[in-house]
Structure formats: C-alpha cells, structure tokens
Amino acid sequence: MHLHVNGRAREVHAPGHASLLTVLREQLALTGTKEGCGHGECGACTVLVDGRPEYACLTLVGAVDDAKITTIEGLGSPAAPHPLQIAFAALDATQCGFCTPGQVVSAAALLAQNANPSEAEIREAMVGNLCRCGTYPKIIAAILAVARGEYGALPEGAR
C-alpha cells in the first residue's frame, strides 16, 4: 500500500484495517504522533489528513491511501520549526510534552481554517486534545501569538 506522508510517497505493508497510528509509529518510525488512549479520547495522535485534523488511532490506513497525511514531523523540525512549534517552545506550552505534538497539529489545522481565531474559538477547536499537565493557558497564548504573526508567517497550506 502507498501512503503520502509528509510530502513523500511511502510504501507500507499493512492490512487495510490497521490503524494509521500504528502504521506511522511502527512502520514509518514517525513516533512524534503519540498513543494516549487508542480510542479517540485524548487527541495525542492527531494528524492532518488533507489538512483536516483526525485521530490517527481511529483512522483506518486503507481509508487514507489517497490522502495527504501530515504528522508533527512534517510540520517542522528542530532545525526548521513551524511557527507554532517555535511559539509552543518559547511560551512554555509544553510540560511533559506527550500531548504536545497532537496539540500543535490541531492548532495548525485551526489556523489553516481560521487565521485569526478568538480565544473562545481556540478553546472549541482544541477541546479534543487533552493535556493532563495543564498547559492549556499557555497553549491558548501560543496560538494567539502565532495568529498575530509574532512567530513568523505560516506556511502556505498543509504540506
């Protein structure tokens, strides 16, 4: 099966009913996408599927073989981080960091849809991403700062 992941065509060997999360983590070594629950309850596995935020744990790999998938690694790297990745780091919107990739990906999806969200719109859009360490106030601040352009221009669309 072929997948389009982070701008590259990747060959994977998995039954169509395998979860996208398992394939990303176990076959493609894209371990930035985390498993917090496996049941679509926590949001740690959020990835972009054609720009939409999806829970990778509930996404069957066979259903997305013609879609463009973007993971946290595809948004940016330590050498070339996405503005949200810079802002989350600079404003301490991460504590243990386990939920952080999912939070950043959800935030990227939000800003792609709504470049200037209100605080209430941010809360609504991010409600599916749990953080047990309690970084919510700093995540809100980071997304608002990126929307104001304080951390550079957002890339054109999701890759």
Partner: peptide, 21 residues
C-alpha cells in the same frame, strides 16, 4: 529561560519509552 528541550517536544522528536524501538 525556555525549556532546554522544548523544541524537541514541540517538533515530536523527543523520544519517550513507547518510542524506543
């Protein structure tokens, strides 16, 4: 000071136990 490992976390490069293969 920002966390010294913040960018590793925000870019998904920080490796947790489940990420060890």
């Amino acid at each position: 000071a920002p966390r010294v490992d913040a960018l590793e976390k925000t870019t998904g490069r920080a490796r947790y136990t489940a990420d060890i293969a």
